[in-house]
Write a protein that binds this DNA or RNA. Structure first.
Lengths: 347, 347
DNA sequence: TCTGGCACTCTCGTCGAACGAGTGCCAAGT
DNA sequence: ACTTGGCACTCGTTCGACGAGAGTGCCAGA
């Protein structure tokens, strides 16, 4: 028995099953793929594959279906990414180029990915955790409030309003605000997020007693913004594709939709990338720790401006999915997004 | 034949059908509701109701089901909002009070509504169209760029980066920026959005020739922000409830999910409120112009700070829904949200 | 080690009958 | 003029049986 042929058979099973969504039998296999052997031989191979836990028969007399392990082997060793056509690449690029701001980039990306793969697209907002402070702005709002605005190097903006009752009015107030703005930016502009937090806290200690309350308030608001933003966001698109995806999902799609609404878990999932940040990561079925998602696969990849992979994006679909194509799409989109973020960043 | 009893029968049918989700027959009706008449009488009434197009029999020998018109009559004349319990009110209030910023208010609101009604919650972002400019801020970014920040009275912030090559560096630049900031705010602070646009445009004309390019760039960026934001956003939650809602939705939930992804149509729907902005608006089944949503009802209501109803929120569910309870929930949430926006606004 | 053949096992769709819920209508009662 | 009980009739639904079809496992031979 040729070990190599066995793998050919597995590959053929995966391909056929993905295409037809029906268990594939020995006869159909030899018809559709020109393996040079007979159905009986294939049957023997199948029996072995089943023993190894790579495929599985829903019931005695039905064809075989790949198991999660089977897909895993297929993805790791039996497939190569199917390159996109030039037209597709151009379309992706142009669609993303049209974005006007970061929100728009994210929005367009998920929609694009969902449309491209006909599955659910998920995208993590560019993380601020590894980002740096670009600028801090203070704006008086009414007499007794101050708006604190934090601008991050990714272009994202966070704002908070703080009370500032102790703030003197008129020119004195303006002078104070100007001074605070200057020192805030001095210690934190260009500084990575985590470092900035401690630097800012030192400012509070150094402040003269009468300015303590207001500096305290501002710094604590900034701290809030960091933490708040650290628990990041995800954006989804293409949920309709779930329902449309026909006979998959033995049970209803409800548990999956539920899981998708738990943004916190999604974020944890997306956060766990493979070692190589430039490779597409695939989490198949039960490899997936989340309860509702054990019949789905997550194909994801990091993206971000510069060398840092700030966040990741991907698609979620039935384990029975076209991995080569999906992986290629995810990779292409991740790269284009990175590129666009780069441009915006250096601009 | 008592006209009044006929309506009682309709009401009973709606109530039973909503509860059991099965067509209701004459026998079941007299058992469950103590109408003082026999099943045969009820049958006669039913025949009439059917003739009037208020109910409908799925097939010859099955119970009756309300039509869209039947629900409409029920909502308009046969039901009153079921008041929430004190505990529920307190829970809503507390949950919303915890919000830290506008995004968080919106996020919490949709999740709350979805949980409360076990349906899909939709919420329009507080519109900027009817809003006023609170403040405009200019922040230099690097040597040749300027970030333009627009702060709106709802607390929302929009930012744009513009090129400013012609901007002089050093103290002169700072002076220029200070002057521009002052005049921008002079003409637009507190001014309603639409008026602000024209005011700003006049600034360009009045600018001295050498400052023209930069003023032009800033104003055009602001104009962009207005238009961009005019095509507003919706936030959804509870899509899983769709799939969970059991036997409803003859077809699959796919078309509904699809429709929900078309944010533009959703916005148009939410935009069409009834005359009375303080009343709950109900759009039932086919009253709904959107193709995918003809088996669903939309219960919505305006909200906003002050007297203005800036935007609206609501829930979407099967036409077979518990209208009194749903309407009460939507109204309660809309009111609390308005209240919270008010507080943030006046603070 | 491969191949053809054959018996065996399942699932799935169809058919028909029994069932039951519910209606429509009629004739009688109030 | 309504209301009521009765009764025949209609149709979906359920259930079991049955046959067809697909696919396997295994064996004996090349």
């Amino acid at each position: 028995m040729s070990e190599e042929r066995k793998l050919m058979v597995l590959r053929a099973i995966v391909q056929d099953y993905v295409q037809t969504s029906e268990p594939v039998g020995s006869k159909a296999l030899v018809d559709r793929h020109h393996l040079g052997v007979s159905a009986a031989t294939v049957r023997n191979d199948m029996a072995q594959l089943e023993e190894e836990g790579l495929i599985h028969a829903p019931h005695t007399s039905a064809g075989r279906v790949p198991t999660d392990a089977g897909y895993r082997l297929f993805v790791d060793r039996l497939s190569h990414l199917k390159p996109l056509s030039a037209g597709e690449r151009r379309a992706i690029s142009q669609f993303l180029q049209g974005a006007v701001d970061l929100d728009d980039v994210v929005d367009r990306t998920v929609r694009l990915l969902a449309g491209l793969t006909r599955q659910v697209a998920v995208m993590q907002y560019p993380s601020l955790t590894r980002s740096t402070v670009r600028h801090i702005e203070l704006v008086p709002v009414g007499a007794a409030h101050l708006m604190v605005i934090l601008i991050v190097n990714t272009g994202r903006v966070e704002q908070r309003v703080v009370e500032a009752r102790s703030m003197p009015g008129g020119p004195e107030g303006d002078e104070l605000i100007g001074r605070l703005r200057a020192s805030l930016n001095e210690v934190s502009a260009g500084v990575p997020f985590t470092a900035a937090a401690t630097e800012l806290r030192r400012l509070v200690e150094d402040a003269p007693t009468e300015e303590r309350p207001i500096v305290e308030a501002i710094v604590s608001a900034l701290g809030d913004a960091l933490v708040e933003e650290r628990e990041e966001r995800v954006v989804l698109a293409g949920q309709a594709n779930l329902a449309r995806s026909g006979g998959d999902f033995a049970t209803s799609v409800a548990p999956i939709l539920e899981a998708l609404e738990e943004h916190v878990v999604l974020l944890r999932l997306l956060g766990q990338l493979g070692e190589d940040p430039d490779a597409v990561s695939v989490r198949i079925g039960s490899e997936n720790p989340v309860s509702g998602l054990q019949t789905t696969s997550l194909v994801s990849m990091g993206y971000g401006s510069g060398l840092e992979r700030v966040a990741s994006l991907g698609v979620l679909g039935p384990t029975r999915m076209d991995y080569p194509t999906t992986m290629a799409s995810v990779r292409a989109v991740a790269r284009y997004v990175s590129q666009i973020l780069d441009e915006n960043n250096n601009a």
